[in-house]
């Protein structure tokens, strides 16, 4: 019994490993597009700053620029996970690729986790592109006061976004115009999920304090800038974040199980 459990666990890890490697090979299969993304990031940043100028903002201090950097990274993460990861699975479903994946993977969750791990590694490029852009345009060198906490915040943010994107995908996979919902979500969710620094106002502070999905991004800024943004000890912020992730994980497992069962029993794949 024990041996069979171990074998099963080993098989699951092997599947996740294979899916991760497959995802990484897919994501890095077009180096030209990666180079273009890195090279065009400063242009987007310059456009953003020029547009602020259009609104009448004339000067930006170093502290504000540091906050902008982390807000931009949070937005890039939300956008990348919803579009790249979430829509990747939606496309797989529409194009029938998911059927083939299901034929070789024992549980669709293995595929999602594997692909998610690959995507989490890939999104580090977004951070690299942003750091480079801020350096090129403003000569800004990032501050990192607590590196282990900063790394932990990226792990927490990635796990949370993996689970949120998966739940989102499971819910919308049969909807039409899912890209429209994604477009709206990519603006609404970050606002609720810790994108805006608490310094922006008392309502934002309240939002960041009480929104359970905001903590990884708040911790990210706190670790980088070295001060508490919300009046909660950092340990508790991490604990709240872990609890949120655990709850999202349970919800994801239930939804994926229902989705998997529906697909296997009823055979409703693609656009049916």
């Amino acid at each position: 019994m024990q041996a069979s459990k171990r074998r099963l666990r080993g098989a699951v890890f092997r599947e996740i490993y294979v899916e991760t490697i497959r995802g990484l090979r897919l994501l890095f299969s077009k180096p030209s597009s990666i180079i273009i993304n890195v090279l065009t990031a400063p242009l987007w940043l310059a456009f953003f700053i020029l547009t602020l100028r259009g609104f009448g903002v004339l000067t930006l201090g170093r502290q504000i620029l540091q906050l902008f950097l982390w807000a931009a990274y949070a937005f890039a993460l939300y956008s990348s996970w919803l579009w790249g990861f979430g829509h990747g699975i939606i496309e797989e479903s529409y194009e029938g690729v998911l059927e083939n994946v299901m034929a070789v993977v024992s549980n669709i969750l293995d595929h999602i986790i594997g692909w998610g791990l690959a995507y989490a590694i890939y999104t580090l490029l977004d951070l690299a592109a942003l750091i480079l852009s801020f350096y090129l345009i403003f000569g800004l060198i990032i501050e990192l006061h607590n590196i282990p906490l900063f790394v932990l915040s990226i792990v927490l943010a990635s796990l949370q976004l993996l689970l949120i994107s998966t739940i989102y995908v499971m819910l919308v996979i049969r909807f039409r115009s899912s890209w429209v919902i994604t477009n709206i979500m990519q603006f609404l969710m970050p606002a609720l999920g810790g994108l805006i620094p608490s310094e922006a106002g008392k309502y934002i502070l309240l939002l960041n304090e009480y929104s359970p999905i905001a903590y990884p991004f708040v911790i990210m800024r706190e670790a980088a800038l070295g001060y508490l943004e919300v009046p909660i000890p950092i340990v508790f912020q991490v604990i709240y974040s872990v609890i949120t992730i655990m709850m999202l994980l349970v919800l994801t497992i239930i939804l994926v199980w229902l989705f998997d069962r529906r697909l296997r029993i009823e055979g409703k794949l693609g656009l049916t």
């Binding site: 602020l52 609104f55 009448g56 930006l60 115009s177 429209v180 919902i181 477009n183 709206i184 106002g201």
Partner: peptide, 27 residues
């Protein structure tokens, strides 16, 4: 895809509104 058309109408509000929101902290 009627949602796409709706998006075309509301997206400028999202983008211009979002930028105005950020800028409003400074001016």
């Amino acid at each position: 895809e009627p949602g796409g058309l709706v998006l075309l109408i509301i997206l400028p509000y999202f983008i211009a509104g979002g930028m105005a929101f950020i800028a409003s902290f400074f001016t």
